[in-house]
Computed example of a mutant assay.
Amino acid sequence: MIDLPLSALEVSIVEAGTTPADALANCQHSAQELSRLGYHRLWFAEHHHSLAIGAFPPALLAAHTAATTTGLRLGSGGVLAPNHAPITVAEQFATLATLHPDRIDLGIGRGPGTFHEPTARALRRGADPATDDEYRSDVAATLDHLLDVGIGELPEPWLLASSDAGAEVAASLGLPIAFAHHIRPDNTLAALKRYRDAFRPSRWSDAPRVLVCVETVCADTEERAAELARPMDIIKAAILQGHPDQPFPTPAAAAAHRFTAEEEQALGAFVAQQARGTRDTVEAALTRIVEATGADELMTVTPVHSTPDRHRSFALVRDLVRRG
């Protein structure tokens, strides 16, 4: 049995044949289920202009969910620093932390949250993508503003990363790191070593702290898990082919889809580093990842079409992790 805090990342899937309003409702149903199951945190991701994922601001989702659940820590996984004024992010999350003491996290990330260039430029008010130096400056400014706004309680800040560069920012600012193993698993081990080697203690953390996020789909049979995960595999394959703006397909449409040999190879390499299958398979995969990374906390993301099937996966995975 895995002995770590267990958390979840919500990416707000807009299922084929549904609306963004339905996706919002599903988010809240999932939050209630995660709270009932005793998950530690629930973070909301920032996305824009996507047919498959809702454009719901993490701060708003965290605020609503904090008011309608108990126990769960809520936050951003993450709010994307280049898209926002640092003082605005600080004010929003300091307000949330004061309204909901000891329950709010501020996960900060870098990407634009969209593959649509006009939307990315609109988020930046026409500016070019942030450089490494600009990103680090934005994160540092956000932390400084948290201390200056003087509202009351403070959120717990985390730095989201999927590369060595992100790991270096987290280490230099003394932040806990949430690593996106579910996006770039090939980068995980080297980046976490760099983070631990370069970590500088700060008021935010006196030692390195590592959360690892893993794509996790657990079902009663291997075949069912593969069926549930296949729609997201189609989204990944489309991204690999340079066609990221795809709707999230139904399981029936996904079953009829045929991958190219190149896509099959790339997806197979990715799946081998995630956690997909029955309870035994998922437990073994998560255990390997935890042991390899030395993670202090485990976060799962479960991008499947059916909300009941997501909830079943949440429950099966919860039974694999020791309750705190």
Results as ranks from 00 to 15, higher is better:
1 M>G: 14
2 I>G: 00
2 I>D: 02
3 D>M: 09
4 L>G: 06
5 P>H: 06
6 L>R: 01
10 E>N: 09
13 I>G: 04
14 V>I: 15
15 E>G: 15
16 A>Y: 10
17 G>S: 04
20 P>F: 15
25 A>N: 15
27 C>E: 13
30 S>M: 09
31 A>T: 13
34 L>F: 02
35 S>M: 02
35 S>I: 03
36 R>S: 14
36 R>T: 08
38 G>C: 07
42 L>W: 14
43 W>N: 04
43 W>M: 02
44 F>P: 01
47 H>I: 06
49 H>I: 15
50 S>E: 12
50 S>L: 09
51 L>I: 07
56 F>G: 07
59 A>R: 07
59 A>K: 09
59 A>Y: 08
60 L>D: 13
60 L>G: 04
61 L>M: 11
61 L>K: 00
62 A>T: 09
63 A>I: 05
64 H>C: 10
65 T>A: 11
67 A>P: 14
68 T>K: 01
69 T>E: 04
72 L>S: 00
72 L>N: 01
74 L>V: 13
74 L>Y: 12
74 L>G: 14
75 G>F: 00
76 S>F: 04
80 L>W: 00
85 A>E: 15
86 P>Q: 10
88 T>W: 11
93 F>C: 08
97 A>T: 05
99 L>Y: 08
103 R>M: 00
105 D>G: 03
107 G>Y: 00
112 P>E: 03
114 T>Y: 03
115 F>W: 11
116 H>T: 13
120 A>M: 11
120 A>P: 09
121 R>W: 05
122 A>M: 13
123 L>D: 09
124 R>Y: 08
125 R>D: 14
125 R>F: 11
127 A>F: 03
127 A>E: 11
129 P>E: 07
135 Y>M: 05
138 D>G: 15
142 T>W: 01
144 D>T: 15
148 D>C: 09
153 E>M: 14
155 P>F: 10
155 P>S: 07
156 E>C: 12
157 P>V: 12
158 W>R: 05
160 L>G: 05
165 A>N: 11
166 G>N: 04
166 G>F: 01
168 E>H: 05
168 E>F: 06
170 A>C: 07
174 G>A: 05
174 G>T: 08
176 P>S: 10
179 F>P: 07
180 A>D: 00
181 H>W: 02
182 H>G: 10
182 H>L: 12
182 H>W: 15
185 P>R: 06
187 N>C: 12
189 L>E: 11
192 L>Q: 04
193 K>H: 13
197 D>C: 07
199 F>L: 07
200 R>P: 03
202 S>R: 02
206 D>V: 07
208 P>I: 04
211 L>H: 08
216 T>F: 01
223 E>W: 05
224 R>K: 10
228 L>F: 15
229 A>I: 08
230 R>S: 05
235 I>W: 00
246 Q>G: 07
251 P>Q: 04
253 A>G: 09
256 A>L: 00
259 F>S: 04
259 F>G: 02
260 T>D: 06
262 E>P: 11
264 E>R: 06
265 Q>R: 09
265 Q>H: 11
266 A>Y: 04
270 F>Q: 10
272 A>L: 15
272 A>D: 14
275 A>V: 07
277 G>I: 13
279 R>I: 01
285 A>F: 10
286 L>S: 00
287 T>W: 12
291 E>S: 10
294 G>R: 12
297 E>Y: 02
299 M>K: 00
303 P>K: 07
304 V>I: 15
307 T>Y: 01
311 H>F: 03
312 R>I: 08
315 A>H: 06
316 L>Q: 03
316 L>M: 09
